[in-house]
Amino acid sequence: MTKPPPDQPQEAFSRRSFLKGASVATIAGTAATAAATAATATQGKPETFGPGTHEIQLKVNGQNKLVKVETRTTLLDALRDQMDLTGAKKICDRGACGGCTVHLDGQPINSCLTLAMDAIGGEITTVESLTEGGKVHPLVQNFVHCDAMQCGFCTPGMVMSSLACLQQRGKPTREQIQHDLSGNICRCGTYGRIFEAVERTAQGAQGGGK
């Protein structure tokens, strides 16, 4: 039997206004323009894409990128195979393991269950963003310091779920961390050390230093 999830901060909710729906539609329109050869956009009729390959624009780690996809291409495959952003892993490919976790508009999601088309207009953040420009995010440092990994294959997904936990809760309790990471599986069994890495980050630690 399970307990209800620990209390969620209200602030996290208010941040997600429903304006996003509008931006999706608009920007999906923009993408149609970018992919004018593939899309048919007639006034008063739905826009359609595919089947077949077409180009879309995705905003990944703050940069707009043009990628060739089919309508059936997942965001995970687009990231890994088209952009060589292989931090997000394909492990279960069914939304059960969290290995493919990226942030979409600030929220961690399963990129394996997300069509690349559905990510148009969204802000996609991958684990690679945490070590860009020679800077290492404290969370990543603390994963290393706490040895929150063994084979390391689940680790990028764990980092991204942990990042969301920290961003949304600030100083999460152990129970909240366990709750927020419960969409991620680790086979080597590194959970406890991941919790410690998140806690250390919340306390302001940066790896072994302060």
Partner: peptide, 12 residues
């Protein structure tokens, strides 16, 4: 709603 699937799934 909060017990369904995983946090990652529930976000979408």
């Amino acid at each position: 709603a909060g017990l369904t699937a995983t946090p990652l799934v529930r976000n979408r």
